[in-house]
Amino acid sequence: MSTCPRCQAEENKIRTEHKGLNAKGELVWTIFNCESCAFTWRDSEPASTIDYNLREEFFRVDPEKPYPVIMPPAQYK
């Protein structure tokens, strides 16, 4: 897994979360999480969800963008 399917963060930002095994103990899939954009995915998902080039552009995330903050903590200070 080289980059994040949603924000194209590099491999060093990708965390391996969990490996799903079958009853015989064989690997079935792996779950990853991107520390840049918080996307979580499984490598067995359809390509339209986990291939950056096949995903709808609308759903790309730029971690540098100022996304709205729900109940901003600063407002209490």
Binding site: F39, P46, S48, T49, R55
Partner: peptide, 18 residues
Amino acid sequence: NLYELLPLYRINEYDGGF
């Protein structure tokens, strides 16, 4: 490890996670 304890999955295809 919630990913192990619960059979988690993506509900709709462009959800940000499980």
